[in-house]
């Protein structure tokens, strides 16, 4: 050993000795969530995300191929989710709320890492769990509220029932990374649809924690698939994918909206979006005004069935 390398070695020993009482934290690798599994992006790409309280995270940067895989997983999960009885779908959503409660501290830390104050983050997590419970009560009420029997003038029994559209891609709200995400996602799931969700680009960590919650919940694999990455890169493919039946563009940046709608129109995909005067801001889903079902109703198909009455 030369003189130089001996000096280096002693510095290393000193560093280890200095911190021997502090346990080194095991950091989480933020991954994608596709078909119930946690892959890295097939592209091998990550984006370095600087966190508000120091440090950084390497967030998976999903590719077009990851998106395709997510659509495949969603499509194969769709019939089973739609076929579950409404009460059970509600209970499964409620179970997710139970598990979120258990992980409240981690969701809170995620929000703090994205710049939320402590009490603000705590409130946001509580509101998100409550929002999920609000939606858990919806599945077995949807047909009564949105469907019905139709008193036609001829001698027929005619009823209208809402049915799920199928595979819905959600561009989650950018500035409401947990409450907004939960609101848009839960509406889609309550209606019996399956989802591919594009997490907030600047604040993806609550979405990552949600994937880890969903994985141990009763939500079947493939019913929710969550991608992190860049919207400008993924959205042209997401809106034009022919096996995506609907797109929730609530979180779509204004400059991408027209192209997104043109893409969705190519295959007559259903579209939900912000109202004209609505802004993508953190407060958009807070309180009673956040209890909204436009993200649920946009992806329900009304089926009207006729049958003659007679002997």
């Amino acid at each position: 050993m030369g003189k130089k390398s001996g000096k280096k070695e002693s510095a290393l020993i000193a560093a280890v000795t200095a911190s021997d009482n502090a346990r080194l934290e095991i950091r989480r690798t933020p991954k994608l969530y596709i078909g119930g599994a946690f892959p890295r992006s097939e592209s091998g790409r990550t984006d370095v995300l600087q966190l508000a309280r120091g440090g950084s995270a390497n967030v998976a940067r999903a590719s077009r191929k990851d998106l395709r895989e997510a659509v495949k997983a969603a499509r194969s999960a769709a019939p089973g989710w739609a076929a579950r009885n409404a009460s059970l779908r509600g209970q499964i959503l409620y179970r997710v709320a139970e598990l979120m409660e258990g992980r409240a501290a981690q969701f809170r830390d995620d929000l703090i890492a994205h710049g939320y104050g402590k009490s603000e983050a705590t409130e946001e997590v509580a509101a998100s769990i409550d929002r999920l419970v609000w939606f858990a009560g919806w599945p077995d009420k949807i047909p009564a509220v949105l469907g019905g029997t139709n008193p036609v003038a001829s001698s027929h029994f005619v009823f209208t029932i809402p049915e799920p559209t199928g595979v819905v891609a959600i561009v989650a709200p950018e500035r409401s990374p947990l409450l907004g995400l939960v609101t848009r996602l839960a509406g889609v799931l309550a209606g019996g649809n399956v989802a591919i969700l594009l997490a907030s680009e600047a604040s993806p960590l609550p979405a990552v924690t949600l994937t880890e919650t969903l994985a141990v919940s009763d939500v079947p694999a493939g019913v929710v698939n969550i991608l992190t990455g860049r919207r400008s890169e993924l959205m042209p493919h997401l809106t034009r994918h022919a096996d995506i039946d609907g797109v929730d563009l609530w979180g779509c940046p204004d400059d991408l909206l027209a192209d997104a709608e043109r893409g969705a129109a190519e295959h007559v995909a259903r579209v939900a979006r912000r109202q004209h005067d609505e802004k993508d801001r953190a407060s958009a889903f807070q309180g009673e005004r956040g209890e909204r079902i436009d993200g649920m109703t946009a992806f329900l198909e009304m089926k009207t069935v006729w049958h003659p009455i007679g002997s």
Binding site: V158, T160, V305, H307
Partner: peptide, 26 residues
């Protein structure tokens, strides 16, 4: 399909919603 006629066909009524799934519109 948005309208299913069972043992009848091409029936319409103002009280009964009509419209399509998939590329038949929304």
């Amino acid at each position: 399909a948005g309208v299913v006629w069972a043992n009848t066909f091409n029936r319409f009524d103002p009280t009964a919603p009509f419209g399509g799934y998939k590329e038949s519109g929304y």
